[in-house]
Structures are given as structure tokens and as C-alpha cells.
Design a protein around this nucleic acid. Sequence first.
RNA 1: GCGGAGGUUGCCGAGCCAGGUUAAAGGCGACAGACUCAAGAUCUGUUUUCGUAGGGAUUCGCCGGUUCGAAUCCGGCCCUCCGCACCA
Length: 916
Amino acid sequence: MDQSVEEKWQKRWAESHVFEPDMDSARKKFMITVPWPYTNGPLHVGHGRTYTLADIIARYKRMTGYNVLFPMAFHQSGTPILAFSERIRLNDEKTIRQYRENLSEYEEPENIDAIIESFKKPENIAAYFSERIVKDFTSLGYSMDWTRRFTSADPFYQDFVVWQFNRLHDKGLIKSGRYPVLYSIDDQNAVGEDDISDGDIDKVTIEEYTAVIFKGTEYSLVAASLRPETIFGITNLWISPSGDYVLVEMDGEKFAVSREASEKLALQHDDVTVIGSIRNSQILSQEFTAPISGRKLKVYQAEFVDPDNGTGVVYSVPGHAVWDFVAMKEYSLDVDPVTIIDVPSDPGITVQSLVSQAGISGVSDSDLIKEATQKLYKEEFYSGKLNGYNGKYSGMTVQQARDSIRDDLFAQKLGFIFYETSRHATTRAGSKVVVSVMKDQWFIDYSVPWWKKLSHELVGRMFYYPEFYRNAMNDAIDWLRERPCARRRGIGTRLPFNREWVIESLSDSTIYPAVYTNSTQLREIFRLLGRIPEEIMDFIYGSGDRSSLSGFDVAVQDLAREARRSLEYWYGVDIRLTAHPHLSNHLSFYVMNHAALFPENLQPRGLIISGLVISNGAKISKSKGNAISLLRISHRYSADLYRLFVAVNADIASTLDWNEDEIQAVRKKYETFLALVSNRQHDAGFISTQIESWFESRFNQHLEEYFQGMEKFDLRGAIISIFYEVMNDIRYVEQRGGNTGYAISRILDRWIQALAPVIPHTCEELWESMGREGFVSTTIMEKDNPGPVDQEILSAEKYLQKVIQDIRDIIKATSIDPATIEISVCGSEMRKLALMLGENRVSEATPRLKPFIGDYMKNKRNIDTSVSGEAAILRESLTYLEKTFQCQVNITENSPVPGKKIAWPGRPVITLKPSS
RNA sequence: GCGGAGGUUGCCGAGCCAGGUUAAAGGCGACAGACUCAAGAUCUGUUUUCGUAGGGAUUCGCCGGUUCGAAUCCGGCCCUCCGCACCA
């Protein structure tokens, strides 16, 4: 459909408020939600898929009698919006270029600069993109209720989050403790992914090293390792020839580490003092003792040692570390690699074999070495065992030994935890990013057993599509431990028990769908009181006990009571639909927080988890430039085409590939549909034949399949049945010489209704053009009564097609070009015999018919007594048969002659007579 | 390694839970024909293989088993993808 037509209907829907439901205790409710979008930029086709699927379901449920609530709000919490805004203030070219490009889809070129200028205030970014998203969603025809819209930055919503956290705290689920974070040295502040240069493309994570202490006579050396289990394989130590080393004092001990490492240590441990610098030659002249093994070690210099990684001191395990092995060879050092780990499943995996396989010639092949290191690391970690050289650790798996050796090192004060970033990183402003340990980080403690138990019970009660995600959810819940739930900065709600902290953006968005049910009332209460007191929140979302309202105005009390009623009516989200990457974070928090805070009747009922969208086989990402924005979709393809594509081109659970070829294929079908329906015509006096009745029965069958599919959320199957298959049938009617206009007109109302959830604009337009009153979107379909199916007509048509196929097969096998086709159908006498034999009443056959029993047995497989009146069926379609084969067709009744071909029910004798 | 999903005819992708009606839906592509001055669109047919009669043979990752009968059930193996965590 034309874009202007789509806009017309979007406008009419909005003006008539048809998607803004009220409570109605007489009707069953259905609440469906999709996680709210983050408002720092435009959404792309990938986001659109989940919202579109949800809208199709919402529309379908609405049209099968439910009171449907499909609300939407916006997420603004966290640092990204702040970070983007700050980058614009700093005139970061990349960011500005990206926004310029985003905006060029929406705005006139002359306005763009002013808008970007306004983005220097973060709230303007959020406000701008919220509006854009509303428009994008509207332009795709979503039947959302926007009247309940709010954002995670709205003060009344933050009062709700405060209530939530106080309740979690009451239940003992909030804790505080030490925790490592990414930290900017210059800014003296924690940083998030969005503050880090290229943080979105190349993610920075925190890695937990084991710092191992090598005792010396005057001071010790500290090397940080990810693989403490290799301690028995240590042959020597490395330092950097170009690094500056310093002596630090920590816990009463003196360590030599790189200057960079001393800064990091100071951020991670209390009471770290730098005593002074120390010359490399001084270190090289000393010997140090390896812990546990007690081995004496020399120190060498190696170029690959980075003073700004770990402690700037590396212990060398040439038997199991590619770097060490390559360096040892290159410097021709007099050390013997020791093999201390065996990989029984793949004994070929050794440092030596990997180095030769990869063709590594020296330490300069750093990429090859990194690759080989990863491979070795993974193999040894998952399948490795410590061999007999490992003292009391011999025989342990690598995973066991790692923990065990680490614990022993810590216990003997020969080691401690050292955090390091997974790569070198700076903030967008250029300040170095390191790991710092926060002393009073707040957590939500998802490990509490009673909580896990409640959550598993909830998972057990919920509906899952696809079902296998139920297990995945249980696993995710088991995996969850303490989660930091607050940050020092970012948009969001202040932690009520320590207002220096801001609640982290996933943690403030777990039970928010509850607010959809009554945001209108909350907003009003907030307006009247300037805040929403705890007692009121507790009444609405918690106890429902009216006595807690007694201190408030009647107006406030009324609002609170309505809010509570609304929650009780709507809540329990029936379906929450999102893509699978959310499972192990948002969705598991969603489930667990509801399990902790709400009674059973207000808990989630079901989850639908969709696959991702890829574009031409590749993952969609902004940096790849293949992120197609949603607005461009409705402009370029039309909303209905996009919706149809999303519904039909992949099952909800599968990955959907967005590519032009497939879209064009769907477009062709869609246009064929439009042409069929718009150009249909038939005379009032037209008398129908069998084929139109056949079509109607087929349609009713497809409609039933459609309802069955939709009810179990197999949207793809349902739409294929009601769209593709019905169109194939229309084509068949045409081919059979039937009157398609008449056939379509018999089913058109119901057809348009069934398609309306998927292509609503098109259907409204057609509905109106048919002279129907009101919106097709608000009509109710009788899903329990799809219409009669005449099996006799269906099997008659099937029989005809079988005969045609047989004739084709014979033509193909014989290469005869027939001038006449004789079809000799089974007579009543033989039919009786077949029925008799079919019931094993052989003895009743008359002597005259007995000779045919052998032939019956031979052809048994192909005999079908379910069709009666074969001759009549064929005669009625004689013209069609003659047209199909371009020759004369004669229908006769077979009189059986022993030794000749015999016609049986469902299997006439076919004879081709060539022309010459 | 653990957990999950999956391997189907040129490609995509159903079927598998409830075994036979399955050479295996549908779409795409390819080929042939109709239409057209032509191309495109549309329609028809073909698209594992053999076959001068509607039939036969072989096929659903591999190997075995259950069964009158298996793409579908059971056991083993191989391979691919996703998750294994605090990140929105």
C-alpha cells in the first residue's frame, strides 16, 4: 500500500483511540510487552522484528475477543546518553558524524546542526529519539497504547524504583562490598563501555590475574598470571628492557613492579607506597624463588613484556606458553621447557607443534602467537590434566589445579588478586583506563537460595515459546550471583540507602511493566503530592491494604485505589517478547524480581523469545554500516510489506535474514494479493460450479490452520496457510476455469480479517472499499468456527488431480503425444467387489468376479474407495482435461475382462492413443 | 569441557514430539512451454535416478538397533552454531 494510505489509517486509529484500552471486567485481558528501547539513537530492522511480532500477536488477540494492552515506554538510564552528549560537547568528530548520519534520515539538512547542538544537553538526546521512535513505531502501524508512556528518568517512575529497592533491601537481597570496576585515572571515576574509545566495537572486560610473589633476598618480584596452574613449569622470569621499575611496599613487603603496575596496585589495594625506582640491571642480577616448587629462577629481558600489562614482570613457562617458548628460542637461552600438562584427548596440542604449524618464526609474529596461545589455552583449560611433575597437584584437571594452587598461594601470602583490563583502553577523552576496586559497591544478591527457589517455581508456571528456553531460563537463574546494581554516575534513580549511588540501568528495569497498568494515576498522584510516598506505592504494588492510605486526601486515595485495581486487572504480563540475547540478563532479572516482589497472580505468564535479524548473512551493527533504520523501512518498503516479511520469512525462534532478494519475493506475492483482491469481479447472476465450492472448503481449512497456528504463536505457519496457500488455491481456481472473483468474494471478509493482524493498513483499506463500517482491526473473528469443509468436494478434486498426474506420468514415460485419451472408470459391480475385498469378505465374491481377485491384490495399494461418482467428476471437468492435454478425452465405464487392464475405484484405466 | 540448539533433496526452509497417506510442504534459483516485437511480470510444467504405461531403485550428517514398515523412535559417533556471566 501507498505510504499515504498507511498514514491515513494510522491517523484514524489514533484519532479513534481504538488501541487505548480501559479496564473491563467483563472481558478477558491480554497484556503483551517488549522491553523498552534505549533512546540514544534510531532503531534498526532488528529491533523492529520483535515489536512487529508483538504487534501481530496483539492485533490477533484483539480480534479474537481479548481486551488487549500493548504499551510502550522509554529507557534512559545509564551512561550512554550522558557519554554521547559529553562527546558532542567535546566536539568528538566520530560521534557528530554518526549523529549527522542518523539525523539525515529524519531531518532537513539545514536543521541538523541545530539539533546536534541541542544534544549537548543529554535530556535532549533522549527526548529527541523518544519522539522519533514513537513516529517510527506509528509508521509501522503498531497498535500500541501511547497514553501510558513514561521514561525511566521520570520522577514518579523513580519513586517506583525506590519502592522496589526498599522492598529488595527489606528482604535482605541488597548487599555491599568490594568490587573491581573500569576506572579512568585522570577523571578519577568509574567508566562504562560508552565512555571508552571504541568500547562498543572492541569490548573491554576486567580480567582477574593471580599475582604471584617470587621471593628474593632484598625484595620480591611479582608476576601476574592468568594461569597459576603452570607454576611447576616456570623456568625463569622476564622483565621489559624498556620498562621503568619501582619498589613498592604493600602489607609490609617490598615488591619490584613496573611503574604503571604500581599505579594500578594503589587503586586496587589499601596502603600501597612507592619507595623508589630500581634499575633493570639490579633486578637482572638477582635470583628469585618460585613459590610452592621452591625453584631458583633467573631473570631475563624480553621485548614482548609490556610494562603496562599486569605487573610488568612475567614468569616464563616455555612448555605451555607460546610467547615464552618463542622468546626462549629467539634469545637462545639456556633453559629447558618442562611439560606439566597433558591433554589426553588431543596429545598433539603442544607449544612446539602449534609454533611449527602456525609457522611462527620469532616474537615479531605477534598475531600468530596470540592465536596459537588462545588455542592452547582453551584446549588445556577444558581438557588438560596436570602430570606427575606437579607435586601434590599431580592428576588434577587444569580447572581444579588453577583454583587449588591459587587458594594455596593466597593462604601462604605468596599471591594476591590483580585486576587488569582485557586490552589497553582509553576514554574517549584520552585518559587511561585501568581497573580500580571500589570499596562499597552495592549488589543485588541473586544467589540467595529461597529466591532462586521461588524463581524456579515461577519459571515452571510460565509459558515459553520456544519451549526449550524454559531450561535455559532455569540455568540462567542458577548462574546468577551477586550483581552490582549501582554506579557512581549515569542517568537513573538514586539508591535510597546511599544516595551517592545511581541504580544501574538493567536493575532499574525489571518490574517496570507493572507501571504500564497505572502510569496515568501515578503521574497524577505525583503531581498532587510532589512525590509518591512509600505507603501509597506499597498499597498499589504491595499489600493493597487500604488502611495505609488513611492519611491522604480523598483524591489521592481514589487515584491510588484505581491504580491498584488497574494493576490487579491487567497485571501478570501475558507475553513478554524479546530476542534471545536478553535471556541471561534482562529476562532472568525480570523473572527473579517478579518472583521476589509480587504474588502469583501478578507474576509473568509467558515469554516468547525470538531469534536475531541478520542482514545479507552478516550480523547487524552500526559500525558495519548495515543497520537499516526503521523509518527508512516504512518509506522504502511500506509498513505492511515489512510486517509480512517479518511474519513469513522465518519462524519467531530462527534467525531472520534481511536481504533485498527475499524482500522482493515477498513484495511480488503481496502485490499479487492486492491485484487479486482489487480486480476481482463477478456478475450478480453468476452460477457457481464445483470448483468455487472446492475453494471455499479449502479456504475454511486454511482458516482453521491459521487459527491453530496463531493460537500456538506459530505465526509463520499461520500466515503461510492463510496467505500463500489461499493464493495458490485462487490460482488453481483460475486454471480450472472457475470464477475467481466469485470465489474470492465468498470468503473475502474473513480473509481480510485473518490477514489484518499482519498487514493492517492494506486490510483496513480493502475493508473500507468493500463498504464495511468501522475498522477491520476491531472486528472479532470466530476462531472456533472457521466454516464448513466439504470433504467430498475436496476428495473429488484430489481424485481429478491424481488422474491428471497419472496421465502426465504415462506421457512422460512413453513420450506419446496423445490425440485421444481414454479414461475408463470403475463400474458399480467392480466397486462392490473392491469394497467387499477391502473388508476381507473374499468368500462372498460371485464366481464371475473371482478371477479378478488376483488383480485386486496386485493393485491394492493404489485402490481408493473413498471417492464415488468418478465418471461424473471427470465428465464435469472434461473441458479442463481436454484443455490441459490439448486433445480429446473420452470417459467410459470399464467392463472388466480377465487378462486385460482393469479399472478399480480411484484407479481408472488410462489409454493414450497417439495421433498417427 | 559443560549446557542448549541444529545437521533434510541446487539454496533457504517445513516435516520429526503423536512411525506408514513422504521422493519428502512452501519459497528461491534453474530448465522448458504459454503470453510478448523483445525483455520483465504473470501463468503452466519439469527439477535424485532409471523406465515406450500411471512403475522401480536410491535418498533426509555417519554407523548400528527396534519395527511388517523410520527423515520421524532408541544407542553410539562426527560436524556446525549459541551461552558459560555482570555487559546495555
